[in-house]
Amino acid sequence: MPFQQELTHHYGPQVHIIDSPFLNGLLARLCSPESFQPEINRIVEVLYTHLISITVNNEFTIEKFEEPTRMTALHPGKKLQGTRIAASQKAVSVNLARAGTYPSHICYNFLHYSLPAPSVRQDHIFAARVTNSKEAVTGAEFGGMKIGGDVQDAHVIFPDPMGATGNTMVTAIDHYKTHIPGPAKKFIALNLIVTPEYLKNLLKAHPDVVIYALRLDRGLSPQAVLEATPGQFWDQERGLNDKQYIVPGGGGFGEIMNNSFV
Rank of each mutant, 00 (worst) to 15 (best):
L7G: 03
T8W: 10
H9T: 02
G12E: 05
P13S: 14
H16A: 09
I17R: 09
P21M: 06
F22C: 12
L27R: 10
A28V: 10
S35D: 04
V44E: 00
L51P: 04
L51F: 13
I52Q: 01
I52H: 01
I52G: 03
T61F: 08
I62C: 09
K64W: 02
P76W: 07
G77N: 07
L80H: 07
L80P: 07
L80G: 03
Q81A: 04
G82R: 09
R84Q: 15
S88C: 05
V94W: 00
N95R: 00
L96I: 12
R98W: 06
G100I: 11
Y102K: 12
L111N: 00
S114P: 03
P116L: 09
A117S: 09
P118K: 06
V120M: 05
H124P: 01
A127L: 06
K134W: 00
T138K: 14
G143Y: 15
K146M: 09
I147C: 01
I147Y: 02
G148L: 12
G149K: 12
D150F: 00
A154Y: 01
I157E: 08
P159K: 06
D160V: 15
P161D: 02
A164G: 09
K177I: 12
H179V: 03
K185G: 03
K185T: 07
K186S: 13
I188T: 08
A189V: 13
A189E: 11
V194T: 14
P196K: 11
P196M: 15
L199V: 04
L202C: 11
H206S: 10
V209E: 04
V209D: 05
G219W: 08
G219K: 04
L220E: 04
A224H: 13
W234C: 11
D235C: 08
Q244G: 05
I246C: 10
V247D: 10
G250K: 01
G252K: 04
F253A: 09
G254S: 15
N259F: 03
V262M: 12
